[in-house]
Computed example of a mutant assay.
Amino acid sequence: MRNAISLLSSAVLPLLAIASNTPGFRVAETSPFTVYQYSENGTWIANIANRPNNDLVITRTDVPEVWTINVDEGTAQLATNISDARNLIGISAIDDDEYVVIGGNLNTTTLAPEIGSFSAWKVTIDSDNNATACLIAAIPEAGFLHGVTTFQKTRDTVYVLIADAVQGAIYKLDTTSGEYSIVIQDDGLSGVNNLHMQNKHLYFTATQKKIFGRVPVDLEQGNATGSIEIILDDQNLVTDGFALAPNGSVAFMATFTQNSIITIDLDADDHPTNVIYGGINSTDIAGPTTVQFVQNGPWGTLYIATNGGQTAPVGGSFVEPAKIAGVYL
Rank of each mutant, 00 (worst) to 15 (best):
D62Y: 05
Y159D: 11
I102K: 06
D234Y: 11
I136F: 02
E141N: 15
I170L: 04
T157W: 04
I182H: 01
A138I: 09
Q37I: 05
N199T: 01
I228T: 07
F118R: 05
M197E: 04
I115G: 12
T75R: 00
T108Q: 10
T207F: 13
A138S: 14
F144P: 05
P23M: 12
P313L: 00
Q152F: 12
G300F: 06
N50W: 11
A76C: 00
W67G: 08
T283G: 07
N281C: 09
A163S: 13
A251E: 06
F256G: 14
F33C: 06
P23I: 14
C134V: 13
V63T: 11
V148C: 03
I285L: 08
G308P: 00
N129W: 10
C134P: 09
K323W: 00
V66H: 09
L189F: 01
D97E: 11
T110H: 01
T157Q: 06
V35D: 01
I102C: 03
G226A: 04
I211T: 15
V192L: 08
I139E: 04
E320W: 12
R26I: 15
A322K: 02
G42F: 01
R60Y: 04
Q77C: 01
A17T: 13
S31M: 14
F151M: 08
I228Y: 06
S10Q: 14
R60G: 05
R86H: 12
D187H: 07
R2L: 12
S119F: 05
D156W: 09
I262P: 05
G308E: 00
L173C: 02
Q295S: 12
N21R: 15
D269K: 11
Y303S: 04
W299P: 12
A142I: 08
E220I: 11
Y171D: 04
A131N: 05
I58D: 03
P14D: 11
V12E: 15
P313Q: 00
T75D: 00
G278Q: 06
Q310G: 04
E320H: 09
P14L: 08
N41K: 04
N70T: 06
P246H: 01
F118E: 06
A312V: 07
M197C: 07
F252V: 09
I182L: 03
A142M: 08
L219W: 02
T150K: 10
N259L: 01
T273K: 12
V57N: 03
D97N: 15
T80Y: 07
E98A: 10
V148M: 07
G191C: 03
F25K: 15
A312G: 04
A312L: 07
V63R: 13
H146M: 15
V100K: 06
L145K: 06
E114N: 11
E179K: 10
N129T: 09
